[in-house]
Simulated scan of single mutants.
Amino acid sequence: MSLIQTVRRVTGGLAIVGGLFSQGAVTEAQMPMTRDSGHRVVFHLNSAEEQIQKGLLNNITNLYEALGPDFLRVEVVAHGPGLSLLAKKGSRFAGEVARLKQQYGVELTACSNTMKAQGLTREDLLEQVDRTVPAIVRLMELQEEGWSYIKP
């Protein structure tokens, strides 16, 4: 198939879908959901309490079991005392964090301002951490993009 034929087929398909929406034949809720169009949840962690951190990890597992990894993206943003979840030294749940990252692709953000205040470097964090940026900036960006915000 030539490039022109492919473009015509794709744009024709888009026109059909657009026409179905305008006629009310297909609603947005009926469109197939994907990981990118599905649910996006950011968990805001600022507690070192073992019960809260364990609850957070359980909530993430429960969400993935209920919705499936094809329809859910989760990011944990940790700052202040919550950064202990992502630090190599003292993390009580490093194995569980690694499992969630490996099994579901959970994204992990460590607050760069907290790291600076605590004298931590990137090497002091678990290898699963995706980024180090100011937590408040990251939380704001994700919420502006429509992510659901949960604070355990």
Rank of each mutant, 00 (worst) to 15 (best):
R138K: 13
Q118E: 14
G55K: 10
A48H: 07
E144H: 07
G146Q: 10
I60A: 05
N59P: 01
L142E: 01
D130R: 01
L83P: 04
L86W: 03
V77L: 11
R35Y: 07
E75L: 00
V133K: 11
A110D: 00
E144S: 08
R35Q: 13
D36N: 07
P81D: 06
K89I: 05
V97M: 12
L142C: 04
E123Y: 05
E145I: 09
T109C: 14
K89L: 06
V106L: 02
Q53D: 05
Y64A: 07
E144D: 06
H44L: 12
A66P: 02
V76K: 01
Q128G: 06
R40G: 01
H39N: 02
E145A: 15
A110M: 08
W147S: 03
G19W: 08
M140Q: 11
E65Q: 15
S91D: 01
E141P: 00
T132D: 00
C111A: 10
L56W: 04
N58V: 09
Q118V: 06
K89T: 14
W147Q: 01
L125Q: 03
R99D: 04
A135K: 13
P134R: 07
G55D: 04
G68C: 09
N58D: 11
L139N: 08
R138M: 11
A135P: 14
L100G: 02
S37Y: 12
Q51T: 13
E65Y: 09
L20I: 04
N62P: 05
